[in-house]
Design a protein around this nucleic acid. Structure first.
Lengths: 333, 333
DNA sequence: CTGTTAGCGCATTCAA
DNA sequence: TTGAATGCGCTAACAG
């Protein structure tokens, strides 16, 4: 692979001149520009991004840590970040944390090693303490989908509590009194908050929560199937099921359908996220919207302005969940 | 951010020694290792990946070009690549091509700029010619989901023709004679091959293809909805629909359900890909399996061995699609 | 086992 | 407008 030197020699100029035309510097004669460009093409010259990053002390890269890139939730988050990155002539470097502290730590470190200008971090397993340390070290780091009080100004999150509270209340208003909660078995803040929202809505409406109405499995369709299956096995009266996310809801639907239980006639279902899947299952899911694209956009912009030292927000940006009514909930008398 | 010099000074050794402990070189005394590690921690030293890549001429990065990262199909492809990358102590750099030649070109160039050791490229819009040029320049480049004859040994692809041929024949064997084809409106090889498979199976069974039985829309659920809607509008006799992918199939199901047409009782459906979604819709989709994870694994391994100059395959690795029977097809007399 | 030294490819002074 | 020279942070001889 040819270097800037080769190009300079071929074009009969100095490497400084070549550098100037690479970077569209105004102080380069038309003649130089022409001959250099010709040589670059002839040698199929590729500027070495590593060398540029080394000397310019900026890799022009936005680092992104997500839970699992194959999860469509993160897919749309990443797509949003990528599009804003492109608008700013940057690209993104993505790492998976798999919701494990060890992986999350390694991922953030990798992003730092690579001198990412800005960092957008979705970390659920890492402790507040470690996150604060990283954030202190990297001024452009922003945390998405989590609030760490000490660095709240760098956090973008959803009010998870409100999400399930809304949904539970909606079910209660529609006459439901036997509401199950199918959730994730990951011990992360989201789960706790969403569970609290569910419990609070129950108690605010004088309904007592029962542990046999709650199931915890992997937060995907399979987990949803298993959880619903467990619920059915217990032979308790259930008229509605609130789920941790749309995929668990989809799994719930599968189990119910396999068992000839009609939704929403016999059991109502509410999902969470309002992902693509919500509109594709039968019946279309009533769900809680997680405005992840909006949030990802804000996170990216915040992070970008942080490194430019433009803004200094004072508190966490907390987004509101909203209920999207579709066809998986039926009112009962 | 502290550098290797700072650490050397703090630890009272030379930068060479620091470099040695960073790289776990055997020729470093226990004492040095200890003091250096201590200093590294104290200064929260982060080796600069750009500098390392510059001098070692290897960024330890696998470059990946996909169509659209938010598409679950690519999500699972990337996840597979990432896991193999990690096994080899590498990480991945991902770019979106959005099936546009311009974006695909820019993406591959970015990956080359960043000195990716190996490249796994899913490019549909770029011409064979350009792809060959890139492949010639980068010995470790592998093309996935496409066959470019001149560089067949670097291609990993699915036999798309066989996929739809299989599916169409399956429908015919089950008594269907009025089979529609809902496909993507992108003018790429996959579409052409899959259409040919459909047409060939029809003609091999003495059925005549009719253009009003074919619809071309965006290859997603919305496109599937629209396509099915168009098909219904034409008021033609249809007993089965073959679709370009599972998402189009899911959209098809939505439209049919909205119009109170039962699947598979009134119309049978076959999808393509066997993605996660196939098992979540109602009824579960009979579909053609696209072993993308297997293929991504092979592509990564091939690419990895290519840069090590270990292997020199002679022909394209062509994968077989297989039919996965579920519940969306009914036999008619 | 350790330190000195020479680049890796590039951007950027500073003189001319 | 140009080129020579310097250094970004690091690895890898090489000599000790």
């Amino acid at each position: 692979m040819s270097t800037i030197k080769d190009v300079a020699k071929d074009a009969g100029v100095s490497i400084a001149t070549v550098s100037r035309v690479i970077n569209n510097s105004p102080k380069a004669s038309k003649k130089s520009i022409e001959s250099v460009k010709k040589s670059m093409k002839a040698l199929s010259y590729r500027p070495n991004a590593n060398a540029r990053a080394l000397v310019s002390k900026s890799s022009n890269t936005i680092g992104v840590l997500v839970g699992d890139i194959s999860d469509p939730f993160f897919g749309s988050m990443i797509k949003t970040i990528d599009s804003i990155a492109r608008e700013n002539n940057k690209h993104i470097l993505i790492c998976n944390g798999y919701h494990k502290a060890e992986d999350e730590r390694a991922a953030i470190e990798l992003l730092i090693y690579n001198r990412c200008d800005v960092l957008i971090v979705h970390a659920k397993a890492l402790s507040d303490k470690e996150l604060i340390e990283f954030a202190t070290e990297i001024p452009g780091m922003v945390i998405i989908n989590r609030v760490v009080p000490e660095i709240a100004s760098r956090c973008i999150a959803l009010d998870n509590f409100k999400g399930t509270y809304l949904a539970t209340e909606f079910l209660i208003r529609n006459g439901h009194q036997h509401i199950a909660w199918i959730s994730s078995n990951h011990d992360i803040e989201d789960c706790q908050q969403r569970k609290l929202g569910y419990l609070q809505a129950l108690s605010d409406n004088s309904l007592t929560a029962k542990s046999e109405y709650m199931e915890f499995e992997q937060p995907d369709a399979e987990g949803g199937e298993r959880a619903m299956s467990n619920l059915l096995a217990k032979n308790i009266k259930i008229t509605a099921v609130l789920t941790y996310n749309d995929y668990m809801a989809a799994g719930t639907l599968v189990t119910l359908n396999d068992n000839a239980i009609r939704v929403p006639e016999q059991i109502s279902i509410i999902g969470f996220d309002d992902g693509l899947i919500a509109k594709l299952v039968q019946p279309k899911l009533t769900t809680v919207r997680y405005p992840i694209q909006l949030m990802a956009e804000q996170a990216t912009k915040l992070s970008l302005s942080l490194v430019k030292k433009e803004t200094t927000p004072t508190k966490a940006m907390l987004f509101n969940p909203t209920l999207i009514k579709r066809l998986s909930v039926k009112s009962i008398s």
